[in-house]
Amino acid sequence: MSTVDFRAELAKAGANVDSRWSALAFFARRYPLGAIGAAIMALFVFAAIFAPLITLYDPLTTNASLSLARPSAAHWLGCDFMGRDVYSRIVYGARISLAVGIGATLLGGGIGVLIGLSSGYFGGWLDLAAQRLIDILQSLPLIVMALLMAASLGPSLHNTIIAISIALIPSSARVVRASTLSLRELQFVEAARAIGMSEVRIAVRHVLPNTLAPLIVLGTAQLGATILIEATLSFLGLGVPEPHPSWGRMLSESAAEYVRTAPWLVIFPGLAISAVVFGTNLLGDAVRDILDPRQRG
């Protein structure tokens, strides 16, 4: 893939930039939605990293007298059934949700890309075998697949990431394989062969970069889905185990029982999940455009 000379690119786009910050400001002006997405993600990443500094209560400490306390000046987002501060749990939950979301998306996407690229580019029996494997994986719904994996691996943060990433492999493998099939017939691939480039290098340097656009869109959509799957797994006791705060479990635990009596238990974790999904989608669209020379103009 070409190394993008951002300085030259920016100058060509008419940006008057002399520092990293003004370059950032330029991108923000050019892709306002992407900037919003980046800001949302930055907020959550910040919360995840500095969780102890921006919360007043321990997310695991229970307090029976505060059970189902309404949002107040002391507990901004209220307390749950066990009297744990919801705000603290959401802030600490960002660590788990982001770790699962980003980890599973990258792991599953990476394996999917490897399978999709090699099966699409090299074809033959490799393609046949890989595609049948993908068929099997895909014959089960995403959630059932993740359940199956999680159940066999046992509940823990690592296993949740692995379980979900396996469930994510088929879609990215399919997307990459589909674009690879059309790309490998293009003449720049033949031209690369004519100059004596090895097949693996052609696949990585000429084919892979051109499959990025759909992959990034898929990846950002999957990041959201991943957090939701984690929620389901945790709800069923197969995900991140209690008492660690996970947005998904906070949401699903309280959705049935407390939605009428203590709606803050449902609303705030739900908002956190929606915000992250929304943010990743906005950011993903902008990243796709920035990485595509044709969109950069």
Binding site: D5, F188, E190
Partner: peptide
Amino acid sequence: QIIFQDPFSSLNPRMTAGDIVGEPLKIH
């Protein structure tokens, strides 16, 4: 070496013209 008919599909859209022309040199 070979030159193809379609000048649109024979250049990788994600590489700069310089990288495209320099690639054979790199390989060799």
